[in-house]
Nucleic acid binder design. Sequence first.
RNA 1: GGCCCUAUGGUCAAGUGGUUAAGACGUCGCCCUCUCAAGGCGAAGUCAGGGGUUCAAUUCCCCUUAGGGCUACCA
Length: 488
Amino acid sequence: MEQVRVRFAPSPTGYLHIGGARTALFNWLFAQKNGGKFILRIEDTDTARLKEDSVSQILTSLRWLGINWDEGPEQGGEYGPYYQSERQELYLAEAERLVNEGKAYYCFCQPDELEAEREKQRQLGKPYRYTGKCTAIEPAEVERRLQQGQKPVIRLKVPPTGTIIVNDLIHGSVRFQNEQLDDFVIIKSNGMPAYNFACVVDDYAMKITHVMRAEEHLSNTPKQIHIYQALGYSLPAFAHMPMILAPDRSKLSKRHGATSVEEFRGQGFLAPTIINYLALLGWSPKNEQEVLSINEILAEFTLENVSKKAAVYDVKKLTWMNGLYLNSIDIDEISGQAIPFMISQGLISNIDAKDNYDYIKKIVAAVRERVKTLAEVADAAQYFFKDVEYYDAKGIDKYFKKEGTAELLAEGSKRLKQLTDFNLETTERVYRELIEEKNIKGGDIIHPTRLALTGKTMSPGLFDVMVLLGKETCLKRLAAAIRYIDER
RNA sequence: GGCCCUAUGGUCAAGUGGUUAAGACGUCGCCCUCUCAAGGCGAAGUCAGGGGUUCAAUUCCCCUUAGGGCUACCA
């Protein structure tokens, strides 16, 4: 059996969005599952829409997600180059072959005349199709115009009747009538191949066995099949996977907030979360398990379980899942990833990150249990690195205004001060004794103390916070809080 | 407009010609508790509408509707 070869072929017009990432993931999974190769190809034939840095952004996102390619940019391979802009000769050669075989022809029509014709047909309520006007131009005349320096396009001759059946691995067989098609452009006047043509030529040249892409390409497939047939190529298998839609069910775009992998990364989502969540969008395992490592996904993955229905992504569920990963992944790994967030929030410096790593790690460990993203880890870690500048307004009302609070804090402070060994056990014991003696509820002193120490109404367990902060800092902040209450 | 795809709770989604139509996120209660998370327990909430076929349709067929895609010298 021939080796499975699949590809992901992004166009470098921006960041890698989650729909693209999911397509890449499914291709990657399919390749792994079948012992095949996953190829990355850059479709950069639209010179007008190219964006600087887009390729490196896409590569960075894929690598961060752990989706590695066997052949492609920065990786090489025997079917390169993997940038379409570098494969122009091949496209031109194949297109000219079609012209010589009478299966394609030069067309000298100008864009504006075409547009005018299109508009006319639209007003008549008729579907527009190219008239085929240039089909009849004599070879000598073609030659003459080329000599003159005219820049024609090349169009494929499409049979006026007949049916193309696309056998899709996900959608089954889908029929398209040739009458719907016209003689479409395969080489643009600037010499660049049009998408459908480059795609077919490359998929064949790169020995792609399974073309798996987003559903938006299903309607392009009959055109591509015409190209395969004209070129005398054998057909690959096709699988069109459902699209990922924005929450309002429209196509993903910038106005929908975060849609790119980089944005989610910047918000503190973890790669395994994104992989896991994306896998669940459009695919579901046979069993009920939803939290799956990439290896578990791999073990379960089949095209049969891929849905036909477009899916809307839900940041809430993504966030929930991220919380799970944040707390199950090795603490060193999480700390390492949280540090850049702490640095960018100005909590620590690069030097601190090295010198105080063990301390930072303890803080991350304490704090991560109650947050969901790396950005939130940094938020929640603030008061370990900076003085408390203000107290939460609701907290003041709730905990600082009660009669006798300052005295209680003073008493707690006094007892903490006497501790020579300042640890989890001793700090809690001192407080519990105080609570016992005063016959108050634990919260009566714990809450104001938390507010004094952190400025917030929520934090890790109070005694964990105390120990992490250290005796000196605790006493200092308690004193500051007492002063604050007294001054009011 | 033409052609194509799709249609199970707010979202993801399992599922079948006969089921009390799973599960997850979210939401709402309750429990636990030093706060917040987490966790535990429980609740509300779905087969888009209309026709067929059938003893029986959420499931099969048709229409309508809705959403999405293609209809470019974009990919």
